[in-house]
Amino acid sequence: MTAREVSLAVEVGGVRLKNPVVTASGCAGYGREYARFYPLARLGAVVVKSTTLEPRLGNPPPRVVETPAGMLNSIGLQNPGVDRVISEEIPWLREQGATIVVNVAGFSLREYAELARRLDRVEGVSGLELNISCPNVERQGTSFCTRPDTARDVVRVAREATGLPLWVKLSPNVADIGEMAQAVAEAGADAISLINTLVGMAIDVDARRPVLPRGTGGLSGPAIRPVALAMVYRVAQVVEVPVVGMGGIATARDALAFLLAGASAVAVGTASFSNPVAAVDIVEGIESYLREQGFSDVRAFVGLANPDLRAPRGVTPARAGPRPGGSPGGPAPPACPAAETPLGQEEGPG
């Protein structure tokens, strides 16, 4: 008996992925470290560390603390800045044959626009993921991701600055994730990724102070998986654009649950820390499960546990394909169905 081929390819808001598993931003750097464990081209895409306009040193240590079935991080967006990412990291990733999604983070609308503009025509970049969980320095540091209007503004300025597919990454630290999703979709998001980390804290009892110098950090890992799953399920009901689900995914079965909830693809973050090849294991596990269960195309599996899925079942909503490079004043964004809003917190995690 020959094993039946299972098609794992998906298209997520104009980004073609050979399989539905990508790295979660900030958990695989710019790919170099995990390339020592597996070929990066095995994954659907490498979503790189949040990249800012200027290089950032990040927060003082300690930056992580283990918590029950999870961890808090307060990295502070340490990254070499967009120019070095363009000159050094992206060319290297291209050589690896990786599909590249660049996660960007700004501290003002101007910065988001500038980041999108600079990455717009960079060879090898398949799409941008907007991390909107950053404090907005123009608005007293309130995070872009906590309010539908500010989240919408970020997407709009990025949309005007680039023709690249835009994934918008939502924060779970909001009152209504569905409302955020709708807001960013209306503003032109091609896909929504969620969830970013939840605000959390650990206190050192003997020292009588929080473990992390900034007090709070971002909670990730299996502890947040049920929260993430519920949010993915909800967002898939209110927006038509594809969803990239993440939060505590450690095994193929975890990933399959997110697909069933309505995610077209999944991201693997914290799991890589205790299993450097987790993402590849998950690709293989999804494939063998689907084969066993008689599925020939992963897209037919998406949303099966979610009767009220907004997107047409069994197909990843297609978009018009990458738009021509969007300079400001370029073509107006197509009326994209769904979007979400990112999450954010003070300068905490990431």
Partner: peptide, 14 residues
Amino acid sequence: ALMACGVGACMACV
């Protein structure tokens, strides 16, 4: 240092 990945990917152990 408190570490997470141990391989250079997460920027925890600075």
